[in-house]
């Protein structure tokens, strides 16, 4: 679905944000994009949305060359959720806000209304269709922004730190919605600083550092490279830190989440003692 061939980007001021790397993302994958601030994550997302054009190399999305198609055309294929919903929301009701994108794509009348209603339902905002977006909480505003992207029905979603500035419950809500969208077939590329969230939701991770692609692989493989993660200021999820030594000794199976670790520990304890001593009936 996404293919980057030696993609590089240099800002007009000479800053080399992306130093030229390649990767591929297949349809239906859920990929986390991680790295320190300034590593080039947002730049890569903007290239995918066609908002910036690669200064070298080629970036293909759904068979289209992002340098050759108009941004509005690309918006049918790539839904780009910005970090701050306040950069987008300006209409008096959620309904109008959700209709903004599809209307720009030329939809009218019933088709338009259906798109808006469908998008609201997908993010659980149906009761808020007539509300003023600016009077909603930050987490709800972020969901409005996400729905306004979904209303254009793009198969690919690129999300720039969708949980910033929200409390844990709101963050979980939006990540669960994204997970559902992924299960319905969307390809997801999501920037996140929260390794616990990444461990819970993503299948694969790309690690950027200084404009280079440092790591690319399944979560377990990426989290195993603690040296590289440490260099970008990241720690693997706590489950991995806790289980590390036992895994190395072959006492615990590989895990990435706390739930998996819990199950593994209970398994070991059961093996050690009588299960009835460990688990209440």
């Amino acid at each position: 679905m996404i293919r980057a061939e030696a993609v590089a980007f240099t800002y007009p001021n000479g800053f080399r944000a992306l130093q030229g790397f390649s990767f591929e993302i297949k349809a239906g994958e859920f990929v986390a994009l991680i790295g320190a601030n300034g590593a080039g994550k947002t730049t890569l997302l903007k290239l995918l949305g066609g908002l910036l054009k690669p200064t070298a190399g080629r970036l293909m999305v759904g068979g289209l060359d992002t340098s050759r198609v108009r941004v509005a055309e690309l918006a049918r294929r790539v839904g780009f959720l910005f970090q701050n919903p306040d950069h987008q929301l300006f209409l008096p009701t959620v309904r109008e806000e959700l209709a903004f994108g599809p209307r720009n794509l030329g939809l009218k009348g019933r088709a338009l209304a259906e798109r808006a209603a469908g998008a609201a339902a997908a993010v659980g905002l149906t009761p808020y269709l007539e509300a003023n977006p600016r009077q909603l909480s930050k987490g709800q505003r972020q969901r409005v922004a996400l729905a306004s992207i979904l209303a254009m029905e793009p198969p690919v979603l690129v999300l720039d730190e969708p949980t910033t500035g929200q409390d844990y419950r709101e963050a979980l809500e939006i990540m669960t919605i994204i997970q559902q969208l992924h299960r319905q077939g969307h390809t997801v590329l999501c920037v996140s600083h929260d390794m616990e969230m990444v461990a819970c939701f993503a299948e694969r991770a790309l690690v950027l550092g200084g404009g280079k692609l440092l790591l690319d692989g399944p979560l377990a493989a990426v989290f195993a490279r603690e040296d590289i993660l440490a260099a970008t200021g990241l720690l693997p999820p706590q489950a991995i830190q806790l289980a590390r030594a036992y895994q190395a000794a072959g006492l615990l199976p590989p895990v990435t989440t706390i739930e998996e670790l819990y199950a593994a520990i209970i398994g070991v304890l059961r093996g050690k003692k009588d299960a009835r001593q460990v688990l209440p009936a």
């Binding site: 509005a72 049918r76 780009f80 950069h87 987008q88 599809p102 794509l105």
Partner: peptide, 12 residues
């Protein structure tokens, strides 16, 4: 940023 955010919503 706002221009980019609206263009991402197919705003021409």
């Amino acid at each position: 940023l706002i221009v980019q955010a609206q263009r991402a919503r197919a705003y021409d």
